[in-house]
Structure formats: structure tokens, C-alpha cells
Design a protein around this nucleic acid. Structure first.
Lengths: 214, 214
DNA sequence: TAGATTGTTAATCGATTAACAATC
DNA sequence: TAGATTGTTAATCGATTAACAATC
């Protein structure tokens, strides 16, 4: 089981933005949208948009563009966003709560069936409609809920131990929002989200403008 | 004023992870850390770590590695994280509150001087020690606070209008957490954080494992 | 000393961009 | 029809990886 490497990762990362724009066109009643328009909207090169859209298999019509309906369906299918994915969330703090309530994820098939926390004040209640269970019951609960994805928003020191519990419970994919590099078996899919890396980019841009950096 | 393009962007994105590891070594009392060790810790190739660290200007010692103290300082300086950056946050909802309380940012020189919201129940209070002001006072407040960075966590429909206010108020950099592509002048630095793009990557990895995709 | 690790130079790989014929 | 936009093939660009001499 080699670590899953994605081809066209940069293209895949751009697909959600395309989807967003194309859905807007759909709501506006358009039947076709051109790569040129999408590019303009996102400050990208038209050729890049065309190349990216090619991976979905949809073919456009010269002069008109891509069929909106089919394109939305194709992107969603390519990403697997046309199916429901059961998920649990670990650590219902501020970030965790924000993710539980993030409307867009529901649109993308991500369905939270439960969240876990250690705070007795939260356990037994709901956040954004999702029941909060005790962290002690994680392993059993995940097994019976048959959740596929775990969103990890616990404090960093607990990240590794929690991940190990998740793996024992049969979780296949972990979306890791902690700044801990998880050490798990090769066949577990892990996507790490690092807020600091975006801030690093912003910081360097600021340095450049200030002339402190070339 | 051309849009700021970063050279070595992928390397810059990795620097915060390096910094995290190196700081751990520092706390453990180590004077040197090798690229090999950092690579191991992060599942990267040693050569990649060496190349990345080269941009900070620090030179290592064969056999020992890089001087921890100097390396931490060099990375922080390169990123401008050795200076305080005054920031405001727009939209103190769940995500906004999470960012206000994100400890690590303080370590990186990001200092929230105020947050703005439309909720009368929040205005006048504090979240994670940061005063919440009325959204109506944004322009004046930012001018007098002399904030440099704005973190944008308002609902998407308000994103563009809010950004325009921020620009009028003299904000130089916007860290945009909405899924709206902001249309602002070229000399405004914008870093967009798109949660969906990470989820797209996770989704495609899952598809691959399921054999639904090659 | 022997060997781990560095920095440099070159090779490979993959992503972006360019050019352009095809076509609705 | 004329021209905007597509898909394809080739060129460029930049990032990653390999090879290896230098060295502590």
C-alpha cells in the first residue's frame, strides 16, 4: 500500500473554484460557460482552465464553451462529491464548530454524523445540528456509525493519539487540521491542512513589497 | 504595481513546518539539527529540505547539520515573523473566533488589535481577548488602529463589499477565507485560503483507493 | 580516520504556457 | 460567413530529485 500520490494535484485543487463559478452560471440560467469567462473570473489563464477541465472528460463546443449542467455533474463525479460521505469530527472547539457549520461541505457530500469532545458541557448537546459525543466513546461510536472520514481538530498534543484511535476504529481518511504530522499506516489517507503555510506566503509577499526581500 | 508573484512558493509553504520541528529540537536542547532528521519527521526528501533551507541563507555543518538557534532566527526573519504585524479580523463567527484564538499566530507576529462583527450581542465584548467592534466603524477604526493585515471571515456575500471598505481604510494585505475571488487594486496583497481545495484532494485520493478513478 | 551530511551542479519530472488547426 | 473558443501538440518554465565532491 504505497502512499496515495495524486496526479494533477494543482488542477484538482482548482476544481472547487471552477465548480463555484459554474454553479453561479447555472443559477443565472446559463446553458454554456466558456473557459475564457471562468479564467477571467478567477484571474487565471484560459488555457489553464481548459487543460484543467479536460481531466473531467467534458468536451466543450467551440464558440459557446462548456455545457454547464454536464460540467457541474462531471466535476462532482470526478471528486466523488455526488455521493454522501459520512464523517465525524474530533474536537468541537472553535475551528471544529466552524467546520461543522460550513454550509459548503454539505453541498460537497460531506455529512457529519457525530462530533467528539472532552468538554462535559458540550457532550450530549448539538452544534450546528450535529450531536456531540464523549471522546471516550470514539472507537465504538465510529464503528457503529460506519464513518469513513475523520476531521481532526483536537489540540496538537492529542493529535497523534487520537489518530491512532481513529485508525483502530476503521477510519479510512483523516483530514488533519493540527500542525502535527501524523504517523499512521500507509493505507490511511491523510490530508493535512496547514493554516500557517498560507500565512507564510502572505508574509513573504508583504516582505517583498517592503523591499526587505528580493 | 504588478500582482506580487512569489518565487519558491512551494518552499515558502514548507518553511512553517520546518520551523515547528526545529523549535521542538530547540526546546529539547539540541544545538544542531540535520536536514535528514527534518525530512524524516515530515516525510520529505532530505535534498528537498536542504534546498528549501538554503533560501534562508543559513549554512550547515557537514555531519552535524544546521545550527538550531540561527536557523529559527533566519526562518523567522525571512518570513518577517520576527516583527509584530497588527491585524484586524472581519466577521467574528465560528471560523473568525477560531482564528482569533489560534495560539500559533501570536508566535508568528500576527497580533489582532480588533475584530468586527454585525451581531449586537458580540459588539462591545471580547473574544479570546480581542475587542469586538461594530462593523459600521470599520473604516475609521482601522485608520486609527493602523492595522496592516485584515483577516476576512465574513459570509461570502459580504466579502467583496467588505474588502472595498478595507482598501479604503488603508489595509495593505487581506487574508481571505471566503470563497469569493476579491476584485481589488493590484497593489493590495491578497492570500486566499480555500478549504474546499484540500477537501478536493482528499476526495480524489479516496476515489483512487476505491478504484473509481485511475 | 571513516562516514554522515552538507552545498552545488546537472538531470529529470511535471506543470504551465504558447501556438495553431479544427469547428460551431 | 467571420470569429470566438475549443482540444492537441509542442515549448517553456520551474520544482524536485540525483549525483557527487567537499568537509567536519
Amino acid at each position: 500500500m504505497p502512499k496515495t500520490k495524486i496526479s494533477y494535484a494543482p488542477s484538482v485543487r482548482r476544481l472547487p473554484s471552477y465548480l463555484h463559478i459554474i454553479r453561479q452560471a447555472q443559477r443565472a440560467g446559463d446553458y454554456y460557460i466558456s473557459g475564457t469567462v471562468i479564467a477571467q473570473e478567477l484571474n487565471l489563464e484560459p488555457i489553464q482552465v481548459r487543460k484543467d477541465l479536460a481531466i473531467t472528460g467534458i468536451i466543450g463546443k467551440p464558440k459557446k464553451g462548456y455545457p454547464v449542467e454536464a460540467l457541474v455533474a462531471a466535476i462532482e463525479h470526478y471528486l466523488g462529491w455526488d455521493e454522501i460521505h459520512e464523517a465525524v469530527l474530533l474536537g468541537a472547539g472553535n475551528l471544529g464548530s466552524a467546520l461543522l457549520g460550513y454550509q459548503e461541505f454539505q453541498l460537497h457530500g460531506l455529512h457529519f454524523v457525530a462530533a467528539f469532545d472532552t468538554d462535559p458541557g458540550k457532550i450530549g448537546g448539538h452544534i450546528h445540528g450535529v450531536p456531540i459525543l464523549s471522546m471516550d466513546t470514539v472507537e465504538q461510536a465510529i464503528k457503529s456509525l460506519k464513518a469513513e472520514i475523520a476531521v481532526l481538530t483536537v489540540p496538537s498534543p492529542q493529535a497523534q493519539a487520537t489518530a491512532e484511535t481513529l485508525v483502530r476504529a476503521g477510519i479510512a481518511s483523516i483530514w488533519n487540521f493540527t500542525n502535527t504530522k501524523l504517523k499512521v499506516a500507509d493505507d490511511i489517507i491523510v490530508q493535512r491542512e496547514d493554516l500557517s503555510s498560507g500565512y507564510a506566503l502572505l508574509s513573504v509577499m508583504m516582505q517583498k513589497v517592503k523591499g526587505r526581500l528580493e
